[in-house]
Amino acid sequence: KKVLATKVLGTVKWFNVRNGYGFINRNDTKEDVFVHQTAIKKNNPRKYLRSVGDGETVEFDVVEGEKGAEAANVTGPDGVPVEGSR
């Protein structure tokens, strides 16, 4: 997949743990970017399912997906594990 941007910060708009996807709002362009649970690189080690929490700040790369921009290599800021869904 073509990389459109790297090390982008954003805020998780919503994430559905059961369906394994959601959207992140980019801090720079204010665009919403699709995020799938497989894109989460560093999950909260205390959680079994990969997820990001609503309102959580995350860092990610933006790649060209089949339906437009999507997140890849999702971590917390500066590469720490994500907090995950509460």
Rank of each mutant, 00 (worst) to 15 (best):
K1H: 05
K1F: 06
K1I: 05
K1R: 09
K1A: 03
K1P: 04
K1V: 04
K2N: 06
K2S: 03
K2I: 04
K2E: 06
K2C: 00
K2G: 01
V3M: 07
V3K: 08
L4Y: 07
L4W: 06
A5D: 08
A5G: 05
A5K: 09
A5I: 04
A5Q: 07
A5M: 06
A5T: 06
T6R: 14
T6F: 08
K7A: 08
K7C: 05
K7N: 11
K7W: 02
K7P: 03
K7R: 14
K7H: 09
V8E: 05
V8D: 04
L9F: 05
L9S: 13
L9W: 06
L9N: 08
L9H: 09
G10Q: 04
G10C: 00
G10N: 03
G10A: 03
G10R: 00
T11W: 08
T11K: 10
T11I: 10
T11H: 07
T11D: 04
T11P: 00
V12D: 02
V12Y: 01
V12R: 00
K13W: 00
W14I: 03
F15H: 04
F15M: 04
F15Q: 04
N16P: 02
N16F: 06
N16W: 03
N16S: 13
N16Q: 02
N16M: 04
V17I: 11
V17K: 12
V17E: 12
R18W: 08
R18A: 09
R18G: 07
N19D: 12
N19I: 15
N19M: 15
N19P: 04
N19C: 12
N19Q: 15
N19T: 15
N19G: 10
N19V: 10
G20S: 03
G20Q: 06
G20R: 10
G20P: 00
G20Y: 03
Y21F: 08
Y21W: 10
G22D: 01
G22Y: 02
G22F: 01
G22R: 02
F23R: 03
F23N: 05
F23A: 05
F23K: 04
I24K: 02
I24V: 07
I24G: 02
I24R: 01
I24E: 03
N25G: 03
N25P: 00
R26A: 02
R26W: 00
R26F: 00
R26I: 04
R26G: 00
R26E: 03
R26V: 03
N27Q: 08
N27I: 08
D28W: 00
D28M: 00
D28R: 01
T29P: 02
T29F: 01
T29H: 01
T29I: 03
K30D: 08
K30R: 10
K30F: 09
K30W: 03
K30I: 01
K30S: 08
K30T: 05
E31M: 05
E31Y: 00
D32P: 03
D32T: 02
D32S: 03
D32Q: 03
D32G: 01
V33S: 02
V33C: 02
V33A: 02
V33D: 04
V33T: 03
V33P: 02
F34I: 06
F34P: 06
F34E: 06
F34M: 04
V35G: 02
V35A: 05
V35R: 01
H36A: 07
H36D: 07
H36F: 01
H36V: 03
H36I: 01
H36N: 06
Q37I: 15
Q37Y: 15
Q37A: 15
Q37L: 14
Q37S: 14
T38S: 15
T38V: 05
T38W: 03
T38E: 07
T38H: 08
A39P: 00
A39G: 07
A39W: 00
A39D: 05
A39K: 04
I40A: 02
I40W: 08
I40R: 01
I40D: 00
K41G: 09
K41S: 11
K41M: 12
K42W: 15
K42Y: 10
K42R: 14
K42S: 15
K42C: 15
N43C: 13
N43W: 14
N43Q: 14
N43K: 14
N43P: 14
N43T: 12
N44F: 13
N44V: 11
N44E: 10
N44K: 11
N44H: 11
P45K: 14
P45M: 10
P45C: 15
P45E: 11
P45V: 12
R46K: 14
R46F: 13
R46S: 12
R46Q: 12
R46N: 13
R46A: 12
R46C: 11
K47I: 08
K47Y: 10
Y48K: 15
Y48G: 15
Y48S: 14
Y48W: 14
Y48A: 14
Y48I: 11
Y48H: 14
L49D: 10
L49Q: 14
L49G: 14
L49I: 11
R50L: 10
R50E: 10
R50Y: 09
S51L: 12
S51F: 12
S51Q: 10
V52S: 05
V52T: 05
V52N: 04
V52R: 04
G53S: 15
G53Y: 14
G53A: 14
G53Q: 14
G53N: 11
G53C: 14
D54H: 15
D54N: 13
D54Q: 15
D54I: 14
D54F: 14
G55D: 04
G55H: 07
G55L: 05
G55S: 06
G55Y: 05
G55Q: 07
G55A: 07
E56P: 03
E56I: 09
E56Q: 10
E56L: 09
E56W: 08
E56D: 12
E56H: 08
T57Q: 11
T57C: 10
T57L: 15
T57Y: 08
T57H: 07
T57D: 07
V58H: 03
V58L: 07
V58E: 01
E59F: 08
E59I: 14
E59G: 03
E59D: 06
E59Q: 13
E59R: 13
F60V: 01
F60E: 06
F60M: 07
F60C: 02
D61Y: 04
D61W: 00
D61M: 01
D61E: 05
D61N: 06
D61C: 00
D61L: 00
V62I: 13
V62G: 01
V62L: 07
V62C: 01
V62Q: 01
V62P: 02
V62H: 04
V63A: 04
V63Q: 03
V63K: 01
V63D: 02
V63G: 01
V63P: 02
E64S: 08
E64V: 12
E64G: 05
E64A: 11
E64Q: 13
G65V: 01
G65K: 03
G65Y: 02
G65W: 00
G65N: 05
G65P: 03
G65M: 00
E66N: 09
E66V: 10
E66K: 14
E66C: 12
E66G: 07
E66H: 09
E66M: 09
E66W: 08
E66I: 13
E66T: 10
K67E: 07
K67W: 07
K67V: 06
K67R: 14
G68D: 02
G68A: 03
G68M: 03
A69W: 09
A69K: 11
A69T: 13
A69V: 14
E70A: 07
E70G: 01
E70Q: 11
E70F: 10
E70C: 10
E70P: 00
E70M: 11
E70H: 06
E70T: 07
A71S: 03
A71C: 08
A71Q: 00
A72M: 11
A72E: 08
A72G: 04
A72T: 10
A72Q: 12
A72R: 10
N73Q: 05
N73F: 02
N73T: 01
N73K: 02
V74L: 06
V74F: 00
T75G: 07
T75C: 08
T75I: 09
T75L: 06
T75Q: 08
T75F: 02
T75D: 06
T75K: 09
G76H: 14
G76W: 15
G76I: 15
G76P: 12
P77G: 09
P77W: 15
D78P: 09
D78Y: 12
D78I: 13
G79E: 14
G79R: 11
G79M: 10
G79F: 10
G79T: 11
G79H: 11
G79Y: 10
G79S: 11
V80F: 10
V80W: 10
V80L: 13
V80I: 11
V80A: 14
V80Y: 11
V80C: 13
P81C: 12
P81G: 14
P81F: 09
P81T: 11
P81W: 12
V82Q: 10
V82A: 12
V82D: 12
V82K: 10
E83K: 14
E83C: 13
E83R: 15
E83I: 14
E83D: 12
E83S: 14
G84W: 11
G84P: 11
G84D: 12
G84K: 13
G84V: 11
G84S: 11
S85R: 14
S85D: 12
S85N: 11
S85W: 11
S85T: 13
S85L: 12
S85H: 15
R86L: 13
R86P: 13
R86T: 14
